[in-house]
């Protein structure tokens, strides 16, 4: 009963934390654009939170830079369980054009485990929403 309730509430209100780990801003503004009237993710109960301690889902944009690596791990640890990570954009998946630059480690998955990958450079806001909904389906199953 209780597990059902928690699962229901988890599905209905995934709170997200948006984290830029060295992205070029394009992915970030598209994530923010997903919040605005045209796309409006709040329909799905998705809310952008300011601190990792309130969040369920970390939305990462950008390749992991060397300087951000430790911070990324720290933020991941600060997020309460159960936590999920969505890698948004080609950078977060593999490094995109920055692959091979000296200060870039690679995709987010080199540092923390990732649940959903959303491709695109930059991703469209619709794709961000689709990614979150896919994650919800994964949770259900």
């Amino acid at each position: 009963m209780l597990t059902k309730l928690t699962q229901w509430s988890r599905l209905k209100s995934p709170w997200i934390l948006h984290l830029n780990t060295g992205a070029c801003n394009a992915c970030d503004i598209e994530v923010v654009a997903a919040l605005t009237p045209r796309f409006d993710v709040e329909r799905f109960g998705i809310l952008l939170k300011a601190t990792p301690r309130h969040a369920d889902v970390i939305v990462c944009t950008g390749p992991a830079t060397r300087q951000m690596k430790d911070r990324l791990i720290r933020i991941y640890e600060q997020t309460p369980d159960p936590k999920f990570v969505i890698a948004v954009g080609a950078c977060a998946m593999s490094g995109c054009v920055y692959r091979g630059a000296y200060n870039v480690i690679g995709g987010i998955d080199q540092v923390i485990p990732v649940d959903v990958y959303v491709p695109g450079c930059p991703v469209r806001p619709d794709a961000v929403i689709d990614g979150v909904v896919k994650l919800l389906n994964k949770l259900k199953g």
Partner: peptide, 14 residues
Amino acid sequence: LGYNHRGLEKLAEQ
């Protein structure tokens, strides 16, 4: 700065 430093100027030379 430097959280977003990716080493682009070096990369451009390649």
